[in-house]
Design a protein around this nucleic acid. Structure first.
Lengths: 193, 193
DNA sequence: ACAGCACTAGGACAGTCGTCCTAGTGCTTA
DNA sequence: TAAGCACTAGGACGACTGTCCTAGTGCTGT
């Protein structure tokens, strides 16, 4: 296997630390220690802390795009694709109960910090929104596609926040079951309107 | 009017700053400057930063309880009371779009920090959950009262997160309308089960 | 009038933050 | 072989962090 470049190691470590500890609570020393390099070293790779955040967001966007493309290429119908999205809540339940949703919590933290990268972080949500809207359109809900996509995104975010607060796995499964019922009722809804 | 004690001023300023800037990004110097007292002064009122957080959470619980009691005493039916809760999303839309939900964002930040006060912050959610469950029971949904309460809480949290990310007021109003429709459909649901 | 106390200001403290600088690796290319 | 460059280590920097200490205020009760 090709050895991972130091730069990539930094971005990967920063990505995990930003998720698990938050952006503000993660210091350069933490990242350097996680990678195993000296603190002064990575000013050769990143001019400032904001540059690392920028790289982390870019990495997350890339990986999100790859994940969505993967679901798209699996050849199943739009309903199955949406289910792939929804089932992330169960697949990642342990991390979600510990740290919340990586996208939602980052956007919230950047909003409070009034950070310049806020818009770029929101673009990750935009990827999900656009992909989900495309699936909704494929289901026949052309007019309400974007509205339905945002609704499903919000529902998932709400589940993540409450799961983090209450550490309740049964709640996650209940809500996912509710989403599945809602999803099953969607085609009828789009036909009747 | 009775002059507000210095201690109360500190807690009030810290409450606002924790909400608007986050716990980690708010320093003693920030709070002291907001109140207009010296940095060293409030070690007479609070032994450590965690004590201020404790006081802020206690204040929020007190005010939440008072708010819920107020809605309870207004003499209307359970559906109107639940609507009072839901309409917080619209009444506080500006702050929510800027900083998210005070409870949800605090719980998420404390989870990432692995902070000892995490459980106490979640208790604020517990107040809402119990109060909403009581209203659900009054609506006739005895078996599913707590589940419905958690669902509504999660829905609201999801709306808050997405509103913060996208700064979209129309989205908030759409979702609130959706909640209202869901709420109107609830009695039928509880009778049929 | 005087002792006691609640309260306040302001600075000292060790530690950490993000940032920058310098010296020194080892590989690449001419 | 020699020059150049990408990369690394480690420390210095001023600013800021949470915490603690001391001196001084003004009100309280005796």
């Amino acid at each position: 296997m090709p050895a991972q470049s130091t730069r990539d190691q930094i971005v990967e470590a920063a990505d995990a630390l930003f998720y698990e500890s938050g952006l503000e609570a993660t210091s350069f020393a933490d990242i350097a220690a996680a990678v195993g390099i000296s603190r002064g070293n990575f000013y050769h790779h990143f001019k400032a802390k904001d540059d690392i955040l920028e790289a982390v967001i870019a990495r997350r966007m890339e990986r999100t795009r790859a994940m969505l493309d993967g679901w798209q290429a699996e050849g199943e119908g739009p309903r199955e694709r949406i289910l792939s999205f929804v089932h992330m809540l169960i697949a990642n339940r342990t991390q979600i109960m510990d740290f919340g949703c990586p996208v939602g919590t980052l956007c919230s933290e950047l909003a409070k910090l009034d950070h310049a990268a806020q818009g770029r972080a929101t673009e990750i949500f935009g990827l999900f929104r656009d992909w989900l809207a495309e699936q909704m359109r494929a289901l026949g809900a052309v007019d309400r596609a974007e509205m339905l996509a945002l609704h499903l995104l919000a529902w998932s975010q709400g589940v993540a926040v409450m799961a983090t607060a209450f550490k309740d796995e049964a709640f996650i499964r209940n809500e996912v079951a509710g989403i599945e019922r809602w999803l099953a009722s969607l085609p009828d809804f789009s036909q009747s309107t």
